[in-house]
């Protein structure tokens, strides 16, 4: 059935059942493949997107539950926090395989939008749902602190 949702500021209409996970709508119907499939069970965070500014796991968010909510993906994330996070990520060469990094960045941007100066425990709490098998955690932590400093400036 035809469902209209707002993704990255645009109204998009897709032909999909309401029980379809948002992840597969984004990836297979809308070609927004920056949002990754990692576990399908909300255990790894690779599929993290923002729904009305809150980070959610798109693999466990049904299309029918999105309603009027505004979906933002890695392709559409903008603003001061997003810019600071990306600049920090590039400056510290955080990425390795990179497959989890869309989700990491979406979680980090949401953290900084809520908390301008997160401590290590704040970061651990906010980022614990995002798995990185390359274990870039050490640099993610440093990059979030770096992004926070950039936001202060």
């Amino acid at each position: 059935m035809a469902v209209t949702l707002t993704v990255n500021g645009q109204a998009r209409t897709v032909d999909a059942d309401p029980d379809t996970p948002l992840l597969w709508v984004l990836r297979d119907e809308l070609d927004l493949v920056g949002t990754k499939f990692g576990c399908g069970q909300a255990l790894c965070g690779a599929c993290t997107v923002h729904l009305d500014g809150t980070p959610v796991r798109s693999c466990q968010t049904a299309l029918g539950d999105v309603g009027d909510g505004k979906v933002v993906t890695i392709e559409g994330i903008q603003g001061r926090e997003a810019e600071a996070v990306r600049a920090a990520w590039v400056s510290l060469d955080v990425v390795q395989c990179g497959y989890c990094q869309s989700g990491q960045i979406m979680s980090a941007v949401a953290l900084l939008a809520e908390n301008k100066k997160p401590t290590d425990p704040d970061i651990d709490a906010a980022m614990d749902g995002n798995v990185c098998r390359c274990a870039t955690y050490h640099r993610i932590r440093a990059a979030i602190h770096d992004a926070a400093r950039r936001l202060e400036a």
Partner: peptide
Amino acid sequence: RVDNVAKTTG
């Protein structure tokens, strides 16, 4: 790294 930008933009 040559891949650090493409891997932070999706």
